[in-house]
Structures are given as C-alpha cells and as structure tokens.
Simulated assay, not measured.
Amino acid sequence: MKAPVVHQHPQLHARVCSVLNAALRADNTAIDTVVQLAEGLDAHTADFLRHSRRLVLACAAALSSVLDIHQPVTEPDAPRVCRECGGHQCRTLNNILNVLDAYAARPGEIDRAEAWRRADHYFNARGGPTSLVAVDTFEDGYVARAFTTTTTAEPAGPLLVIDRRTGRLSAWPPMPRQTLIEQYRRYLDGLL
C-alpha cells in the first residue's frame, strides 16, 4: 500500500534538501584538483566529475519544483491531499521515492556542529551586537537560543529549531523545551 501524501512529501523534501546541501558544500576547485591528479580517468568520467556539482544542483532543483506542485494541502472537512492530484496518495511522489530508494539516496543528518554553525549565522549575520549561541539536541533536531553578551542570562529573541534530517530552520516563540518538542512534532506531522 502506498503511503499518504502527508507522509511522502516530508520524506522527499528531506532527501532533496540533503542532496542540495551536499552539492552546495562541495568545492568545485577541490573536484577539479582531484580530476587533474587522478590517473587513468577516461574523458567521459573526468567530464562527469567536473560537472557533477552543477548537475546535482540542477536535478535537485528540478525535484524541488515537482515537490512544490505535489504537496499536501488541507481541504475543508477532509484529510490532507496532494494539491496537484487531489488524492490522499500521490503517484508522482511514490514513484520518486521508489527511484530514490532503488539508488539508496538517503538524507545525511545534520550534526550538532553544523546546527550550531547555521544557528550562529542566523542570529549573528545581521550585524549589531554579537550573540552567544547555545544548541540543545532533541530527537528531531536541535534547539538554538541566542544570548546577548550583556549580563542578563535571558535568551535574546526567538528559539530556532534546526531539523536534523533537512537542516531547515524554523523560528519559534520562547516556550519550555518539552512544549517546543511536542509542537515541532505536530508541525512535522502537518498538524500545525
């Protein structure tokens, strides 16, 4: 039995985001250096390696466009359905998941250091006084708080959740840790 669109879409989105992140982090100069230093590469393989980052970015962007069209929406008095297909199940998402499963394309999880880097950039990239960033781990991701460098120990602004599977950032109002975790799980399940 095929999974409902409300479950397929987050899985696919996590995989596409993982691919995009991996390609964006890849260094073209390093790829070119490896190609130049590698012995015995045929011209086709060398050409593929040189263009692999761009090709992966293009394919992931194309998949992202498909996900934008085939995403769950709430109909009045009905469960969430595919915006394009109109049903609880989406053949397009199911087929894409089958292909990704066949090639063992799994999202790489964000580690705590990467979560801290993203939170630090979020809180400190705007200029102004620098904030200290604290990151706490939970099952679905990381919660980051920014603290001003003044003597107060109160968080400066919203809580930031960094999703463990996708790296996606979402800002939340201050609330107790357990409440945030429960709310975030409801958000992932499409209930918020």
Rank of each mutant, 00 (worst) to 15 (best):
L63F: 04
R186P: 03
A62L: 08
T152S: 13
L20K: 11
E84Q: 08
I69S: 08
P79E: 14
R165Y: 02
T179F: 02
T152R: 11
T137W: 00
D189K: 10
R185Q: 14
R164P: 00
A30I: 11
H13I: 03
L191H: 08
I69L: 12
L132Y: 08
A153S: 12
G128W: 09
T74W: 06
G141V: 04
A14Y: 04
C59Q: 15
F147L: 11
G190E: 05
A146L: 07
P4F: 04
D120F: 13
T166M: 01
L192H: 07
L41A: 07
G190K: 02
D140Q: 14
D111N: 15
A22G: 06
S170L: 10
G190Q: 04
L24C: 09
R112Y: 03
H44M: 08
I69K: 10
F48M: 11
L93W: 02
A23K: 01
V56Y: 11
N28G: 15
R25A: 13
P10Y: 07
T92S: 03
P76Y: 05
T33N: 13
D42M: 13
E139S: 11
A153P: 00
Q71A: 05
L159G: 00
A105G: 05
F123R: 03
E154F: 04
A104M: 08
L97F: 01
A26G: 13
T137Y: 05
A119F: 03
L55F: 12
L159K: 07
P174M: 06
R54A: 15
D101C: 06
G40W: 08
E154P: 00
A104W: 09
A113V: 15
E109T: 12
R168G: 03
T150I: 05
S65M: 08
A14Q: 09
L55G: 14
G141F: 02
I110Q: 01
E182F: 01
R185N: 10
H51M: 13
